[in-house]
């Protein structure tokens, strides 16, 4: 029993600490690496929720592809100012003040969630340990009930790729 609390506690702590560091890391490359760490720990939590497929996808897409893309963008975009982050004088106050903003937003959001949770007619008590959801079922429903969204998603990806290429291709070719 305590194992679940313990592991959840550790993972949650790592996630929140790395997310906080993403905001306050001085160097942008450090921020990217902290982000990768937070993605990894979120994938750990997915594993705790017995969703291996989504955990693996999370690592594959977020920790692998998106982090690398952001790192490449950092390298290409602001080579000059990577070393020195522009330290505006007011930066310190802005962070402290907005810290308050974070707490407020979190509370408002949590309050709203609890309201939705109570007012809706979702069964209140958790379902006992259910059969695990196998990848085969996910695959089957993906291609039967969700074929249209699947095709739309693939077209979306295609558009994103073409857009990215056109925007960034140098004129030299």
């Amino acid at each position: 029993m305590t194992a679940q609390y313990l592991s959840f506690g550790v993972l949650a702590l790592v996630t929140l600490w790395s997310a906080y560091k993403v905001v306050t890391a001085r160097l942008i490359t450090h921020a990217a690496l902290w982000m990768a760490l937070s993605f990894t720990s979120v994938s750990g939590i997915f594993l705790m929720l017995q969703q291996e497929f989504i955990a693996a996808l999370q690592v594959l897409i977020y920790a692998g592809a998106i982090t690398t893309m952001i790192i490449f963008a950092i390298m290409l975009s602001s080579i000059r100012e990577i070393r020195v982050e522009p330290q505006q004088q007011t930066f310190g106050q802005r962070i402290r003040a907005s810290g308050l903003l974070a707490v407020v937003v979190g509370l408002v959001f949590a309050a709203f969630m609890t309201y939705v949770y109570y007012v809706s007619e979702i069964p209140k008590e958790a379902v006992p340990d259910p059969g695990l959801l196998t990848v085969r079922q996910v695959g089957a429903t993906l291609f039967t009930r969700f074929t249209v969204p699947f095709e739309v998603a693939s077209i979306l990806l295609l558009l994103a790729m073409i857009g990215a290429i056109i925007l960034t291709a140098k004129e030299t070719e």
């Binding site: 989504i54 996910v138 993906l142 969700f146 998603a153 990806l157 994103a160």
Partner: peptide, 29 residues
């Protein structure tokens, strides 16, 4: 837990996130 729409929706969220990130970075460049 036995309903597969949850993971699929997350899958779509991830796809959109990836597409959005690439376009965002292209615009930033």
């Amino acid at each position: 837990p036995e309903n597969a729409t949850g993971p699929i929706l997350t899958l779509f969220v991830m796809t959109v996130a990836a597409a959005e990130a690439s376009i965002g970075l292209a615009i930033i460049l």
